[in-house]
Nucleic acid binder design. Sequence first.
RNA 1: CGGGGUGUGGCGCAGUUGGCUAGCGCGCCGCGUUUGGGACGCGGAGGUCGAAGGUUCGAGUCCUUUCACCCCGACCA
Length: 574
Amino acid sequence: MKVSQLFGRTSKTEGIDYKIPSHRMLTQAGYIRESTAGRYYLLPLGLNVHDKIIDVVRKHMNAASAQEVVMPVLHPLELWQETNRTTTTGFELMKVTDRRNAEFALGGTAEEMAVDLVRKFNISYKDLPFNIYQFSMKFRDEMRARGGLLRVREFVMKDAYSFSNEAQFKEIYQKMWDAYKAIFEELGLKADVVAADNGYIGGEYCHEFVVESEQGESRYFIDETSGYAAHEDVATFKVDDKNLDEAMHDMEEVDAVRGTTMEDGVKFHNLPLWQQTKDVLFFDEATKRYILAIIRGDFDVNETKLMQAAGAWELRPATEEEVRDDLGSEPGFISPIGMVKKGNKSGHDVVIVGDKSLRTVRNMYGGANKKHRDILNINIDRDYKPDIEADIALAQPGFMSPDGGKLVEKKGIEVGNIFQLGYHYSNLMHDAEYTDETGKRQKYYMGCYGIGIGRTMAAIVEAHHDDKGIIWPDTLAPYTVYVARIGEAEAVMKAADELYEALQAAGVSVLYDDRVEARAGEKFADADLLGIPYRVVVSDRTIKSNQYEVKKRTETDAQMLDKDNVIKVVAGVK
RNA sequence: CGGGGUGUGGCGCAGUUGGCUAGCGCGCCGCGUUUGGGACGCGGAGGUCGAAGGUUCGAGUCCUUUCACCCCGACCA
């Protein structure tokens, strides 16, 4: 390709105010162009790389015996109603109506479609297991698009859906895990595999593939000695026992003219923070219940874990008015003891969820549901009993991992994930069944597996760039060689043209900077910005010796080679 | 959706307490001089000042409404 003919061009100023390197460089180098917030044009260079990433993903999916299909982008809305996801998805579903008034959802993920497709075939155990996948545009009406390709409203996703029985599933999940490791490794990314929350997708467990990056939005913890890795939403840690050797004392209600913070309580009673109870009241809009979370004073409540434990969907903190008027308690002095759980003013029940850390402390202290009154020597079981006991504590850097090492906090870009879905969808959708060996109908046991192609592209740039521009891994670069022709002397033009032809004849992909209007500095700057692995200069200087100047993007020194050796060096990387 | 901010040629911006023909740099087109790390001169094209309504003799500038975009939060590939 000749630069003079390439659609899209580099710019010194375009995108200069984009803060995130991949966003700025991909825009300035002419790989992408924004349409409106979160929707991008992929220009020829951008599509070139995007396609190469897809090729890598496809290769490994096929090797893991997944089979490629394409599903419609418009999903019949009935399917989403079947699984109740018209209301429970984290992203706002985008809907369209056709001329017959049939309603469709713009696909944001395709579990329902996959199930609907498979059940049309009335399959039996002989068909299992199998895994079908596609590359297709996904639509998500994100609250806020951000960071160029990192978080957008339309993007190509590779999404795969596996169907099996329960016994077969582990192997499929492992296969996808291994395929993902191989994919990201081939793409030049070091991905951590992190346990995470299933969220609106459903199922019981899942893993995210996260590339460590300052620009990432995922926070996760790693125990570097054991390899334990978990998203902050689900990370667990070892809780130390505090004063379990102490005898239980009698409960006592006392005056407590103090402020409403935890520190106020510590100061007033002159007792450790960990001995205080932290009582946090939430309201779940989905199930219309109050949820009272109780935890040891030195820990915080993890809302994701709390939602899982309580079966809640739309948690929000309760307001001060609700605490007072509905529950007859007092902000800052909430307590499970004496809490009216049923038949309170609002008619909404209260569910008490206790963290397991409450069993590591004796004789705790906390509010008495009355202003300026506290209770001392509170002990679980004797004085109150949570409706649900679970781990609802938020992990913090430095805490001890379940394996005994230290938890280190990291930030990263989530480029892919794998979900166990189990019977989640086959329970919700009718006829999601196969016939087993005995002729009985059994539900599909499912998994799903996603990779965002554009986000992966951005993650690669985040991982591979310098202050001059992108540094593509050799196999992903849109072109292997950038031929920079300097000057317009007849002999130079001829030599450059010949080199361009010769490289192409040798099967090397070349971007030939034949612009007469651009000067040397501009061409060098563009070669660096574009991130092409090799730059070959043809100029007065080089043709004098009948040689060419060859420089790798990753190196500072160039070498002089004759044409055959240029081709030899460069042909090795295509 | 909550909080903060910005909308003026393709990009980056200036435009004072309302005032005359809306400017500058980059980029783009033409001619010339240049030619190894983003040159220079001369000439040129390109603008419903985000949109709608209002105040006024007069609005880029003031008022109202609205839309878009950016940054911070909750969500995700």
